[in-house]
C-alpha cells in the first residue's frame, strides 16, 4: 500500500525532492530573489509615501509663481478675491474664514451628537440594537458627497427659506449642517472605539464607589477616553474642512466674511470650493493658477497640522490603555 502510493507519486512527478545542500548557484539565486522580493514589497509600501511627497512637491512648486508675485502674507490679510478682474486681487481671508466658519459650525453640531452617540452605543444599548445601528451609521460615510449636496440644495435650502425666512437657502448654516452629518460616522466610530476599549474594570470600580450611571459616564468614562475622543473630533474636522462638493453646492460661494460675524444665514465660500470651482478653466502658469495652488498649500498646512495633532492624541490614547 505504502509502496504503491510512493511509486505513483514519483511516476506522476507530483513530488519533487529538494536536496538539503544547495549548489552555490541556487544559493545565490535564492539570496538575490529574496532581496529582490523584499525590495519590490518595500517599493510598493513606499508608493503611498511617495504619493504624499509628490503632492506636496507639486502643489508647492505650482504655487511658487503666486508667492513670488504676492508674498506669503499679503494674500491672507485681505479679503477681496477678484482673480478675473481688470485689476486682479487675490485676498484669501474671506475664503479662509469661510472654511473656518463652516467647519466650526459643523463641529458644533456633530461633536455633541457624535460623542453622545458613541457613549450610548458602547455603554447603554443592548448588543442587538448596536449590531444594527452601527452599520447604519457607517453607511452615512458611504453616501457620495454629491448626493448630500443635492439634498442640501433641493431640500434644505428651500426649507430654510420657507420656515426660517432666510433670504438665501444656500448659506454657511446649510453647509455646516450637511457637513456635520458627513462628519458623524467618523466621529462616532473612532470615539466609540476609544470609549468601549476602556474595559469593564473602570466602570465597575466607579459603580462600586456608589456612582450612578450618569456619573460614571460623564465623570469617569468620557474623561478617561478623552484622548481618543479628541482624536475623533479632529478626524471629523478634517473630513469637514477637506470636503469640496457639498460646500460648493450648499454654501452659496459668496466670497465674503459674514457681518455681523455670527450670522450663519449668509453665504460664504470655502477654500476647497474655490479651488474646485475655478481650477478647470484657469490658464496654466498664470498668477490665478498659482493662487489656487497657494490656497491648496494653506489647506495642506492646515490638514497636516490637524493630522499631527490627532496622531498625538491617538498615540496618547493607546499609551493610556496600555497602562490600564
Amino acid at each position: 500500500m505504502d509502496n504503491s502510493t510512493v511509486n505513483l507519486r514519483v511516476k506522476s512527478g507530483a513530488v519533487q525532492y529538494r536536496p538539503l545542500a544547495l549548489t552555490p548557484g541556487q544559493d545565490l539565486t535564492g539570496y538575490v530573489l529574496s532581496k529582490l522580493g523584499k525590495a519590490i514589497l518595500f517599493l510598493m509600501t513606499c508608493s503611498s509615501v511617495f504619493a504624499v511627497l509628490l503632492i506636496f512637491f507639486f502643489v508647492i512648486r505650482e504655487s511658487l509663481i503666486f508667492f513670488r508675485d504676492q508674498g506669503l502674507w499679503a494674500s491672507v490679510s485681505t479679503n477681496a478675491w477678484y482673480p478675473k478682474s481688470e485689476d486682479p486681487r487675490y485676498g484669501m481671508l474671506a475664503l479662509l474664514a469661510g472654511s473656518v466658519y463652516v467647519t466650526l459650525a459643523a463641529l458644533a453640531f456633530s461633536v455633541p451628537l457624535g460623542v453622545m452617540a458613541a457613549v450610548f452605543l458602547s455603554d447603554l444599548v443592548s448588543f442587538k440594537v448596536r449590531a444594527v445601528v452601527k452599520p447604519v451609521i457607517e453607511i452615512l460615510a458611504a453616501i457620495p458627497s454629491v448626493a448630500y449636496g443635492f439634498f442640501a440644495v433641493m431640500v434644505m435650502a428651500p426649507w430654510m427659506q420657507d420656515h426660517w425666512h432666510f433670504s438665501t437657502g444656500t448659506n454657511a448654516l446649510n453647509a455646516a449642517i450637511i457637513l456635520s452629518i458627513m462628519a458623524l460616522p467618523t466621529i462616532i466610530s473612532v470615539a466609540e472605539d476609544s470609549v468601549s476599549s476602556l474595559g469593564r474594570e473602570l466602570r465597575e470600580a466607579s459603580y462600586a464607589l456608589g456612582a450612578t450611571r450618569f456619573e460614571t459616564l460623564f465623570k469617569v468614562v468620557i474623561p478617561a477616553a478623552h484622548s481618543g475622543i479628541i482624536a475623533a473630533i479632529i478626524l471629523g474636522m478634517m473630513r469637514a474642512i477637506g470636503e469640496t462638493m457639498v460646500v460648493w453646492m450648499a454654501s452659496g460661494n459668496a466670497s465674503q466674511i459674514p457681518s455681523p460675524w455670527w450670522d450663519l444665514s449668509q453665504s460664504v465660500r470655502t477654500m476647497t470650493a474655490t479651488i474646485a470651482g475655478e481650477m478647470g478653466e484657469t490658464e496654466h502658469g498664470s498668477i490665478h493658477y498659482g493662487a489656487l495652488f497657494a490656497v491648496g498649500v494653506y489647506l495642506l498646512v492646515i490638514t497636516l497640522g490637524l493630522n499631527l495633532i490627532s496622531e498625538f492624541f491617538l498615540a496618547r490614547a493607546k499609551k493610556a490603555l496600555g497602562k490600564a
Binding site: W81, V153, P158, Q161, T168, G252, A254, S255, Q256
Partner: peptide, 21 residues
C-alpha cells in the same frame, strides 16, 4: 462680494426657481 456663485446654468436656474428673491 456678497453675490453667490454656481457652476452651471441648470444650477443657476434651480437657485432662481427655488428662491423668491
Amino acid at each position: 462680494d456678497k453675490v453667490e456663485y454656481v457652476n452651471a446654468n441648470p444650477q443657476a436656474h434651480a437657485r432662481v426657481s427655488g428662491n423668491r428673491g
